[in-house]
């Protein structure tokens, strides 16, 4: 929270409180194919595809998308990292108000799978409850991996998708599922942490109000000459 306030993001994040707006973040190591997955998904041509927005200050790329979920139009902002993932940590504002997370690794590089643990821990630090999906990308390079088990997803009961940004396998399904999860999360549950933080803020305000008269009294007593 404190970090968040110290560095207000140049993106207006208030809009993510609106019913028809969701924010989905992508996480994962350098060169696992996060941006390529985004580009493949947005190749639909159904909606005019806008250019992704580069927000260099926060090292992120924003992709806008319009989806229809249960007959309702949903505005989706996909947040993609742009280099900051190298530090294996993202700025707090990246997680702020996110409704779902897409976590990607490269099936050809073990280290990117091993690092999922670090990414997941950070995600849960900021967003303990949001839906998260795990993506095994680049299956076109080695289709045999699709016959193997990856315990990370199983351990945390997260859905696992075998995809290829190159040939398109399961990319659209992955993103549509993620959008659905984000929307249903938003409709059905307030993040527990949000509630707690909100309550804490309220308590803080109440306390301050209560403290004010006390402080005045305190001040007046002090100004009195010692008896």
């Amino acid at each position: 929270m404190a970090r968040d306030k110290a560095n207000p993001c140049e993106v207006d994040q208030e809009k993510y409180d609106a019913d028809d707006n969701v924010k989905i973040i992508c996480l994962g190591d350098s060169a696992v194919g996060k941006s390529k997955l985004m580009e493949r998904f947005l190749m639909d041509g159904l909606y005019p595809s806008s250019q992704p927005q580069q927000l260099s200050t926060y090292a992120l790329t924003l992709y806008k998308h319009t989806a229809t979920v249960d007959g309702k139009t949903i505005l989706v902002d996909f947040w993609d990292t742009a280099g900051q993932e190298r530090f294996q940590s993202m700025h707090a504002s990246y997680y702020h108000k996110a409704h779902a997370c897409i976590m990607v690794f490269d099936v050809q590089r073990k280290v990117t799978y091993k690092n999922l643990g670090t990414w997941y821990a950070e995600l849960r630090e900021f967003r303990p409850e949001i839906p998260c999906v795990v993506v095994a990308n680049k299956i076109d390079a080695d289709i045999k991996v699709t016959q193997k088990s990856f315990n990370f997803a199983r351990k945390f009961s997260l859905p696992l998708y075998f995809v290829s940004a190159a040939d398109g396998t399961n990319v659209v399904k992955l993103f549509n599922d993620a959008i659905r999860l984000a929307v249903s999360y938003k409709q059905n549950s307030q993040d527990f942490m949000d509630e707690v933080l909100q309550e804490l803020e309220n308590i803080d305000l109440e306390q301050k109000e209560e403290e004010l008269p006390d402080q005045e009294q305190c001040g007046s007593t002090k100004s009195l000459p010692p008896s």
Binding site: S149, N151, F162, D167, T169
Partner: peptide, 21 residues
């Protein structure tokens, strides 16, 4: 070119471990 390609890869118990766990 097909935009939406769905392929199911069942994750059942018989699978070999990826060897990375």
């Amino acid at each position: 070119f097909v935009y939406d390609i769905e392929v199911e890869f069942p994750q059942d118990e018989q699978l070999l471990s990826c060897g990375w766990d």
